[in-house]
Design a protein around this nucleic acid. Structure first.
Lengths: 177, 177, 177, 177
DNA sequence: TTTT
DNA sequence: TTTT
């Protein structure tokens, strides 16, 4: 995998609902989540406090999807880092439609649960420590060069290929996707 | 303006076409550009080199829009930093449609032309060196300043409110957003 | 203000100690905090779980400093976005020393407390839920607005000039700055 | 590898000098570069244009170091994404000193040369500024390609592959808008 | 020390 | 010095 340019999205927000987990034919997990970010400001004219919430559709793959499915819940606060991806699908009338998502995958992808113990309680169990990334050598200045190149690999094809061609999740009407 | 969460997009890529500049009733400029980022990889099955290009719809506002209109051209390489925004509109059948864009505005927004003198020639003239960050005409600059810098409190609402409620640029049907 | 290039740091981590608040001659607040980020990995040779913590020196200015002083505490989880800045100072022997910090200021700067009610209790009171991003007293909020939002042109110079010329916080000897 | 928190630095700037390449006992390459970012503003008091340049010390490892050594030169414009790291060393008096660097490595690390041929590096012609637009030894370049592409598990190297040596996207008919 |  |  080589990339030309930079395509990066960073979100910190709360889940609008529980993650939806699916499995691809390959067996790989996919987690769809929606993350809310919002801004508040005081309306100049009326002096009232106003708020606007932006909903982000996020798709996590592989190990990150599993972790999301296990530990994230509606309301969970999360940090995600991924890339923008627009995919095409057909609506019931056969018309082309497009959906833009934030795709989070091993390499380029990061998912960090925030808030500590207080939220995002694991589904009936304690959180497994730090295994979802892919074990590898730390950023130790002295020994990584060799190890950097050892494990990362299975991710790239995933990153470049179309992930899946299905219609978007169906949400409530007022959610913008 | 206060924000809850983080909503950030960083792109480095090349413009697919010249910017389209419009002006809002308020006089503020809006520039629509499309940025390509791409990834290449070798297909595991066929061994062929493959490439996938992602096109990003980006909307710049105010001063950044003016600079974009003046200096960016099809093929220009650019760094933009903005936020994801999905807006709703009605297609010709009255059906709700959604378009996701990267919105780049004064505060949270950054736009940096890359590559130096070689590209992004100013419209109808040679590009002035090192001046593209600030319009050459102070008058121009001052026209925008009130909205962007001297009255930034106006920025927050702009940032939070729907930027403009117009149908998306009319493009070909096969456009991925 | 115009910038050439991009200088951006994004950190999510926990405070090693309570913020240290100071005030500049101008009256502006400065908050110094240290943020820990860490990585864990399994040692290939020994098979043991290992961890490496990186400590970041962060300086917040103006309103963000005030908020930090009011709501952040040792252990608080926080998202900060700022820029790298290296400043020069003289040690007791008159030798030049350099300290690199993450500077977080109004414009380019972002500070978001994470984790909700569970942590970072406000000094001497219970933290209101979902309100920690904005002081409860509108008066407070308005007090800061003039400096940060209504007169942002004053921010740019601040951002570009050396923020303060003092020796770094004195920490324990083993702290990496 | 698992990380707690986020430690991310994004820089776009120009090299102050040619990269310095070293090799570790393991054989892995390390490239040290310095990147300048700057801000300009108008001094409120004097009305003069002022500029402040920030210099960043960046260390690239492994494949990215090799690419940097081969293609980057003094003046080259580059995008790097890495993490902050402070390391301890002893000066000639045996005193502890600390140096903070941006460490760029395979996974978390990104290095993208900017400007393409448009910016100055003509193909096999006179080099305008630096030579990084075109590989000096094509053989060398080809050495990397096979590894990157035939063994995708060696992703880190792939990430470091020369991006810019491919034909320009042709922005013609196949553009989705 | 870069760049404009 | 944090956190898990």
């Amino acid at each position: 995998m080589a990339s030309r340019g930079v395509n990066k999205v960073i979100l910190v927000g709360n889940l609008g609902q529980d993650p939806e987990i699916r499995y691809m034919p390959s067996g790989g997990a996919v987690a769809n989540i929606t993350i809310a970010t919002s801004e508040t400001w005081r309306d100049k004219a009326t002096g009232e406090q106003r708020e606007k919430t932006e909903w982000h559709r996020v798709a996590l793959f592989g190990k990150l999807a599993e972790v999301a499915g296990e530990y994230l819940r509606k309301g969970s606060q999360v940090y995600v880092e991924g890339q923008l991806q627009t995919r095409k699908w057909q609506d019931q009338n056969g018309q082309d439609r497009f959906t833009t998502e934030v795709v989070v995958q091993g390499f380029n992808g990061v998912m960090q649960m925030l808030g500590g113990r207080g939220q995002g309680a694991p589904a009936g169990g304690q959180q497994q420590q730090g295994n979802w990334g892919q074990p590898q050598q730390p950023a130790q200045q002295n020994n990584f060069a060799p190890q950097q190149q050892q494990a990362p690999q299975q991710q790239a094809p995933q990153a470049a290929q179309p992930q899946y061609n299905e219609p978007p999740m169906d949400f409530d009407d007022d959610i913008p996707f």
